[in-house]
Amino acid sequence: MNPLITLTLGATLLACVLVVLGLQAYTAGRAQRAALIERLSATGVHDGATRGRRFRGLDRRLRTTGLGRRIEKKLAVTGLDLTPAEFLVYMLAGVAGIWLVAASFLAPFFGPVAGLIGLWAGNGFLNWQRARRTERFVNQLPDLARILANATQAGLALRTAIGMAAEELEAPAGEELARVAHRLAVGHSVEESLGEIVERLPSRELVVLVSTLVLSAKAGGAIVGSLRNLTVTMEQRKETRREIRTQLSQVTVTAYLVPVMGVGSLLLVDTIMPGALDRMTGAAIGQTAVLMAIGLFTLGFLAIRRLSKIDV
């Protein structure tokens, strides 16, 4: 037989074998992926990959950049069901809307200023969501400590007690503990798994609880008594924070009322004297005065917020 024909037949046979092996590997990978998604969804860890996502191409490119990684990290601790691309597109759309509204109702000069304020507000929204989720998690810590104490007293291991707490508690504690239980199930240590929660939702109470659990897992000791004492202490701190928040509610409202009064005064001036803002921002001295006023209002807002912040 012609050597060329033999070589061609051999190459064709090899290509067919590789195609078959490739199809088998692809099918096995799809099956493993489906099983993994089902398992993560059952444990509450899955981040919603089964839901239809928008802007997938932009999201893939955005995650490779530093900005995308920062947005992804912030979204991970807020509990929002958004991808970095979705958040970025929605935020930019909101900034564009605020820009157009400010330029239309006030003056063209206020468009870029409102856009910058919109960008700052988007980042502030993520920080507010993180603080809100952390506060909700801290309020659930007494119940978490009580469940762990009861489970430990009943003779259950710490890993089993954490899984039980993840099933009984609502979000965000249930979701965070489900992540911990999943990490423990795949071989991560207790210290590493619980330390991830401290990094995501930092608080003094959580640090104390995690330290107690880690020390008891390493060296043993009277973990039940420690957890019950922690439960009483956390309940008292919870009541103290609630009282402080009630006492400072008027100050908090004042902090948000200050910038609202500034915007309201601009609208009032433009209503009384139509075109006044256009004439004022048409000169350099007017633009400087507006920027100084915005800076002073922002400084007043931050100062009031800082004075009303009390660490307990």
Rank of each mutant, 00 (worst) to 15 (best):
residue 275 G to S: 01
residue 275 G to I: 01
residue 275 G to M: 03
residue 275 G to T: 02
residue 275 G to K: 02
residue 276 A to D: 07
residue 276 A to T: 04
residue 276 A to S: 13
residue 276 A to I: 03
residue 277 L to Y: 01
residue 277 L to T: 11
residue 277 L to R: 02
residue 277 L to W: 01
residue 278 D to M: 10
residue 278 D to N: 13
residue 279 R to L: 08
residue 279 R to S: 09
residue 280 M to E: 14
residue 280 M to P: 09
residue 280 M to W: 12
residue 281 T to M: 08
residue 281 T to K: 03
residue 282 G to L: 06
residue 282 G to R: 06
residue 283 A to I: 11
residue 283 A to K: 09
residue 283 A to C: 02
residue 283 A to L: 09
residue 284 A to D: 04
residue 285 I to V: 13
residue 285 I to S: 15
residue 286 G to T: 02
residue 287 Q to E: 03
residue 288 T to V: 08
residue 288 T to C: 04
residue 288 T to N: 10
residue 288 T to E: 09
residue 289 A to N: 12
residue 289 A to P: 14
residue 289 A to E: 13
residue 289 A to M: 15
residue 289 A to W: 05
residue 291 L to M: 11
residue 291 L to Q: 09
residue 291 L to S: 02
residue 291 L to W: 00
residue 291 L to T: 07
residue 291 L to K: 04
residue 292 M to K: 00
residue 292 M to I: 11
residue 292 M to R: 01
residue 293 A to P: 05
residue 293 A to G: 13
residue 294 I to M: 13
residue 294 I to N: 05
residue 294 I to D: 02
residue 294 I to K: 04
residue 295 G to Q: 00
residue 295 G to I: 00
residue 295 G to L: 05
residue 295 G to Y: 00
residue 296 L to E: 12
residue 296 L to Y: 10
residue 296 L to C: 14
residue 297 F to D: 09
residue 297 F to Y: 10
residue 298 T to A: 15
residue 298 T to M: 12
residue 298 T to Q: 13
residue 299 L to Q: 08
residue 299 L to C: 09
residue 299 L to S: 11
residue 299 L to D: 04
residue 299 L to E: 00
residue 299 L to T: 08
residue 300 G to T: 11
residue 300 G to N: 03
residue 300 G to I: 11
residue 300 G to A: 14
residue 301 F to S: 03
residue 301 F to D: 09
residue 302 L to Y: 13
residue 302 L to H: 06
residue 302 L to R: 14
residue 302 L to D: 13
residue 302 L to F: 09
residue 303 A to P: 05
residue 303 A to V: 15
residue 303 A to R: 15
residue 303 A to E: 14
residue 304 I to C: 08
residue 304 I to E: 07
residue 304 I to W: 02
residue 305 R to T: 01
residue 305 R to K: 09
residue 305 R to A: 02
residue 306 R to T: 09
residue 307 L to T: 15
residue 307 L to N: 12
residue 307 L to F: 09
residue 307 L to W: 12
